[in-house]
Design a protein around this nucleic acid. Structure first.
Lengths: 236, 236
DNA sequence: GGAATAGTGTCTTTTAGACAGTATTTG
DNA sequence: CAAATACTGTCTAAAAGACACTATTCC
């Protein structure tokens, strides 16, 4: 409860982006090399402070996404991941960071970045295993993002966000296999995906490919929720 | 990216709590009648501003929970729900609110509140249907909380948080039925719950009851993740 | 015994998983 | 035709759902 004389303490609000994509069959996350003081030179998630007091948080996330990746933020999947605000996480003062999870489709070869020349797609595994040292609490944020993505593949159409606008069922399977880190039976996967109502819809024509029978093309269907779900196999 | 001369704009950070419980077989949420100006007199979620600049957000949530419900915050389920920061949501200025979802077990009769005399358990349905007018964007926050709770019943042991430390399988079923708003076959539910590995463990003795055979007692098991899950039936 | 609630067994229909087999392409 | 990839069919075992039945209590 608020007392008349008392004033709440202001904080600084930052936005951090976990941008995941698939590259050579591995789940990768976009990291930038920090150019300014706290953790200068270390790898970190792209992000930044609110540009002005009237900027919406989602707007700020989209702006950062555009600035860092030069991707059209409107076509990408972007969802809020959580708030990270442990006191002391940023030496500059009380900084609260709102983390976002973004999923990018397979991208043209290089890392595109307008203001961050040294951005790179690092394997998510390496980050989780602690082989790469990240600034702040960014390793934890990436871990939470990967956990979220893995879980959402089961019950949502998130996997289509990793693909181009049209894709084959084989492409989709690659997504599941890379994100879950397992391999799946292509024949059973094929039927499972088709059975999930409104998950994918045929995109007319077929595709020219390198060798073998050309695959049908699909695009994301109307339903974001999968029923029945694509269940992740259990370990033992 | 940050320019040397530029200073990020400060914001005010608030914490809001969606405290859910079961009362007479209905999902209810704790609301307080606001005593101060923005939306004075309207129903709102319990919450408040960060008490001082060094207070952790989770700590603030626990403090508010203790202040509002006089429940031991350490025994309750409490998880972060999301950030709500649309510019203009609070007429006092740029207020960012971190919403938390708390689950309270069946409580002793009245609403306990230390500083909020007019707190009440309102049916979640009424809030979702818009029959009750809530301050700020609190209706949306409650809606997101209920959605989260409904989803988590399937794959997590969240249902046990609605029960006392020991409970019967019938109690558990009541939780699922109230939160999902459906009815389930008790016999199939019984086996499903038992089959979920580490969900519930027997709590030794049996229970004295009003009429009928006394039920076995259980307590929450070691596993927070249910496999196999308790799947929510589909509508058609 | 009757009513009420708890718990078990069993049958049927669906679904998951393994995997053989067919189809369509390139070289 | 061989190699490669896409897709289909089928068999079997497990799971979900419906529901009859048994068990234990209070009155």
């Amino acid at each position: 409860m608020i007392d008349d004389a008392w004033e709440p303490p202001p904080v600084l609000l930052a936005v951090d982006l976990v941008i995941l994509t698939l590259r050579d069959a591995h789940l990768r996350v976009l990291l930038v090399k920090r150019g300014i003081d706290p953790y200068e030179g270390a790898l970190a998630l792209p992000g930044g402070f609110l540009s002005h007091a009237g900027e919406g948080i989602d707007t700020a996330a989209r702006r950062e996404l555009r600035e860092e990746t030069s991707l059209d933020a409107n076509t990408l999947h972007l969802e809020q991941l959580g708030v990270y605000g442990t006191p002391g996480r940023d030496p500059r003062g009380r900084v609260i960071s709102v983390a976002y999870l973004a999923i990018a489709p397979r991208l043209p070869e290089p890392v595109a970045g307008t203001d961050a020349a040294d951005a790179s797609w690092q394997p998510a595994d390496h980050v989780l295993a602690g082989e790469l040292n990240l600034a702040f609490d960014h390793r934890q944020i990436v871990a939470d993002a990967v956990t979220r993505a893995r879980a959402k593949l089961e019950h949502s159409a998130l996997a289509t966000a990793f693909c181009s606008q049209t894709f084959t069922i084989g492409d989709l399977q690659e997504v599941y296999e890379a994100v879950w880190g397992i391999s799946l039976d292509p024949r059973n996967f094929y039927r499972k995906v088709q059975k999930a109502d409104g998950f994918i819809v045929p995109a007319g024509t077929e595709q020219r490919t390198t060798v073998g029978r050309p695959a049908r093309l699909f695009r994301a269907g109307p339903n974001a929720h999968l029923s029945p779900p694509i269940v992740r196999p259990v370990d033992p």
